[in-house]
Amino acid sequence: MSWLFMILAIVFEVAGTISMKFSSGFTKLYPVMMTLICYLLSLAFFALALKKIDISIAYAMWSGLGIVLITVVGVYWFEESASILKLISILFIIIGVIGLNLSKV
């Protein structure tokens, strides 16, 4: 169940970041409300995940996979650039998260 909580924490963190982008600097009420709700849900699910998952692993996954997902959203939805350096850097984040997960074995 902790891994489901971890996935939900990541999904809500990404949704909160997307909502923040749509808030135009916290000037649009609906996206601001969605940002707050999504981040609160993300933190709640993250706290539940921490009951069984080591904090170092959980935080690396939460932040690292959040970065990867928001980068994909940025490239495809917001038409941000996808340079080779950006893609290689994302690959290093993924490798780091996998490495941390393997280190607990």
Rank of each mutant, 00 (worst) to 15 (best):
1 M>W: 08
2 S>N: 10
3 W>Q: 04
6 M>D: 13
9 A>P: 11
11 V>Q: 05
12 F>M: 12
13 E>W: 03
16 G>Y: 03
17 T>Y: 00
18 I>D: 04
18 I>H: 05
19 S>E: 05
19 S>G: 13
19 S>F: 02
20 M>E: 01
23 S>K: 05
26 F>I: 08
27 T>L: 08
27 T>C: 06
28 K>A: 11
28 K>N: 07
28 K>I: 15
30 Y>I: 15
31 P>L: 02
31 P>D: 06
31 P>V: 08
31 P>G: 03
32 V>D: 07
33 M>I: 15
33 M>D: 12
34 M>A: 15
35 T>D: 12
36 L>Y: 15
37 I>R: 13
38 C>T: 12
39 Y>W: 14
39 Y>G: 09
40 L>F: 15
40 L>D: 11
41 L>W: 13
41 L>G: 14
41 L>C: 12
41 L>F: 15
43 L>G: 11
43 L>T: 08
45 F>R: 00
46 F>K: 02
48 L>A: 14
49 A>I: 12
50 L>M: 13
50 L>G: 10
51 K>P: 10
52 K>H: 09
53 I>Y: 02
54 D>G: 02
55 I>S: 06
56 S>L: 01
58 A>G: 08
58 A>K: 00
58 A>W: 09
60 A>F: 06
60 A>Q: 08
61 M>N: 11
61 M>T: 09
63 S>I: 03
63 S>P: 04
64 G>M: 07
64 G>F: 09
66 G>F: 01
66 G>Y: 01
67 I>L: 07
67 I>H: 09
68 V>F: 02
68 V>N: 01
69 L>P: 02
69 L>E: 00
69 L>C: 03
70 I>C: 01
70 I>S: 08
71 T>C: 06
71 T>P: 06
71 T>D: 05
72 V>A: 13
73 V>W: 01
74 G>S: 04
74 G>N: 02
75 V>L: 05
75 V>C: 04
76 Y>P: 04
77 W>D: 03
77 W>N: 01
77 W>L: 06
77 W>H: 05
77 W>E: 05
80 E>G: 07
81 S>E: 14
81 S>F: 09
82 A>M: 11
82 A>G: 14
82 A>V: 07
84 I>E: 13
84 I>D: 08
86 K>A: 00
87 L>A: 12
87 L>E: 07
90 I>C: 03
91 L>A: 15
91 L>I: 10
91 L>G: 13
92 F>S: 15
93 I>G: 01
96 G>R: 08
97 V>D: 10
98 I>D: 02
98 I>A: 12
98 I>T: 09
100 L>H: 10
100 L>S: 11
101 N>D: 09
102 L>D: 06
103 S>K: 12
104 K>T: 12
104 K>A: 08
104 K>G: 09
